[in-house]
Simulated scan of single mutants.
Amino acid sequence: MEENNLQNRQFLLDLAKMKMPFGKYKGTFLIDLPEHYIVWYHSKGFPKGKLGQQMHLVYELQLNGLEDLIRKIK
């Protein structure tokens, strides 16, 4: 269980530092992407891999108004 907590913590730290690697918002922190952009990806499908997982978490955080939790880490 402790290993899982460490993985989750690392995932959140990575998310706080991750910037969009391509497109219109290239260079923008994922947590700072406009909500409409994340919702569009949610409807079209997030990218594969870690980036997609991070963007999906950003979607969930924005949906629940919790994005400031990640901004505090950043």
Rank of each mutant, 00 (worst) to 15 (best):
21 P>L: 05
23 G>K: 06
20 M>N: 14
74 K>Q: 09
17 K>H: 14
60 E>I: 11
26 K>I: 01
12 L>D: 13
72 K>A: 13
26 K>M: 01
54 Q>D: 02
71 R>S: 05
28 T>L: 07
16 A>E: 07
24 K>P: 00
29 F>C: 02
27 G>W: 11
47 P>G: 05
22 F>Y: 12
11 F>S: 10
50 K>C: 01
24 K>N: 08
7 Q>N: 11
35 E>D: 15
29 F>P: 01
57 L>G: 02
15 L>E: 00
22 F>N: 11
18 M>P: 00
56 H>S: 10
62 Q>S: 06
35 E>A: 10
69 L>H: 10
65 G>S: 04
49 G>F: 03
69 L>K: 13
9 R>D: 05
54 Q>W: 00
64 N>M: 09
32 D>R: 08
33 L>Q: 08
74 K>W: 08
21 P>K: 07
19 K>W: 01
24 K>T: 10
61 L>Q: 06
10 Q>M: 14
11 F>I: 03
58 V>A: 04
28 T>Q: 07
60 E>V: 11
14 D>C: 01
59 Y>G: 06
10 Q>P: 01
1 M>G: 12
69 L>T: 11
72 K>I: 10
10 Q>D: 12
35 E>C: 10
68 D>A: 13
63 L>S: 13
43 S>G: 06
70 I>H: 01
7 Q>A: 12
43 S>V: 07
35 E>G: 04
53 Q>Y: 04
70 I>T: 02
57 L>W: 02
67 E>P: 03
56 H>Y: 15
11 F>Y: 13
12 L>K: 15
7 Q>F: 11
73 I>F: 01
52 G>E: 00
64 N>I: 02
29 F>S: 02
73 I>H: 02
17 K>D: 14
40 W>A: 10
3 E>C: 03
28 T>F: 03
18 M>N: 08
47 P>L: 03
50 K>M: 13
25 Y>Q: 05
48 K>Q: 15
59 Y>D: 10
22 F>P: 03
41 Y>L: 15
59 Y>M: 09
65 G>P: 08
4 N>G: 06
3 E>R: 14
49 G>D: 01
35 E>I: 13
16 A>L: 05
46 F>P: 09
68 D>R: 13
42 H>T: 09
72 K>G: 02
36 H>M: 05
69 L>N: 10
57 L>Q: 13
18 M>A: 15
41 Y>H: 15
